[in-house]
Write a protein that binds this DNA or RNA. Structure first.
Length: 257
DNA sequence: GCGACAG
DNA sequence: ATCTTGTCGC
């Protein structure tokens, strides 16, 4: 019998995942820890990484796990690892890490073994960091388990902890005039969980940046802006690594918002 | 019934 | 996540 993708995930699994998030959460570092992170030009930063999983059609199980390393600041491809994987965990909002992290860690482990000199000094992650239901999203999870500084960049606003897509929010977006402009995403508690960033002059739709691990929010936002040629930072821009398309690079997304 | 729901 | 086409503007 094929697995029922519509079935509610087992309550006990969710409980286990929540406690695992709480356990790892204590190991999180929310400040700058690296020398290159201070100073306006990120001098000393030479390699930025990006990770992503891409799927095809309606196949929930099989995906391509991609890890790229680009030079900084030129964004030239230094390393690419794109591999077909079979996912086991279901997608549950708030628990993305349990579905994707094992394969991303695997790619990082191969890089560490094969080309340790190419290890990225920071990793961009497709998804949120502390801007999350329990302040421990995919970028935090990957950061803690890999030990690498990580930045979470989400393309859609997660409406959590009182952050809403309200009129106020929309007008704050409208007030972002140039690439690099941003405004804070403030929880009901008063904590700033992330920032909405206009990542380039050309795209009016912001990206949502939050701390993953070993980087401060302000540094994460500055760095994200400095890695954007288009809306999405270069290290996590869509790479064509599905079996359908092959290993060709994808053209910039058309920004029709 | 309707809206939300990272990827 | 992925599907799919055009359309508008510079």
């Amino acid at each position: 019998r094929p697995p029922d993708m519509n079935a509610a995930p087992a309550e006990e699994l969710i409980t286990e995942w929540e406690s695992e998030q709480a356990r790892l959460r204590r190991l999180l570092v929310l400040e700058d820890t690296e020398a290159w992170q201070s100073g306006p030009g990120f001098s000393g930063l030479q390699r930025v990484g990006g990770v992503d999983l891409s799927f095809i059609k309606g196949d929930e199980q099989n995906a391509c796990a991609a890890l790229v390393v680009l030079s900084y600041p030129h964004m030239e491809l230094l390393y690419e690892d794109c591999r077909m994987v079979t996912l086991t965990a279901p997608y549950v909002a708030g628990f993305l890490a349990f579905r994707e992290t094992p394969f991303l860690l695997d790619a990082l482990r191969r890089l560490r073994e094969d080309r340790p000199e190419l290890l990225p000094q920071v990793v961009f992650v497709d998804g949120n960091g502390v801007f999350h239901y329990r302040e421990f999203g995919l970028a935090c999870h990957l950061g803690v388990l890999s030990g690498l500084p990580c930045v979470g960049v989400a393309k859609n606003l997660l409406q959590v902890q009182g952050v809403q897509k309200s009129e106020e929010h929309q007008s704050q977006i409208a007030a972002l005039r140039r690439g690099g402009d941003s405004f804070p995403l403030t929880a009901a508690s008063g904590a700033v969980l992330g920032k909405a960033l206009r990542s380039s002059d050309k795209s009016s739709k912001p990206v949502y940046v939050s701390v993953g691990h070993k980087i401060s929010l302000d540094t994460a936002v500055r760095l994200t802006h400095s890695c954007c040629r288009y809306r999405v930072p270069e290290p996590i821009r869509q790479f064509a690594c599905s079996p359908h398309v092959g290993f060709l690079h994808v053209s910039p997304e058309s920004n029709g918002d």
